[in-house]
């Protein structure tokens, strides 16, 4: 089937979105970071969490980039 590869690519993207959502909710969300053991900890904790979340999204984008390059090169070479 001609579109099978693209279905798989979209499906993998969807799975990646679910995995990133899972990490953000269950791993990064509940993280508690204590540095100074005072009120500034909440701010620092939020900044670290936000950075981790953004980092995770960047990793997702890089993975997708690699995935599409491999798919395109493989399909063009085969045909």
């Amino acid at each position: 089937m001609r579109l099978f590869g693209l279905f798989m690519l979209i499906f993998i993207m969807w799975i990646m979105i679910l995995v990133v959502s899972y990490f953000l909710i269950f791993i990064i969300g509940p993280l508690h970071i204590n540095v100074f053991y005072n009120s500034t900890d909440r701010l620092i904790s939020s900044i670290i969490k936000a950075s981790l979340a953004i980092g995770l999204v960047v990793v997702l984008i890089l993975l997708l980039g690699t995935l599409k390059t491999k798919y395109l090169q493989k399909t063009l070479k085969r045909n």
Binding site: R2, L6, T69, Y71, L72
Partner: peptide, 11 residues
Amino acid sequence: ATLVRLILAKG
């Protein structure tokens, strides 16, 4: 690389 190029990759 665009979606259309991917669709056309097989012909």
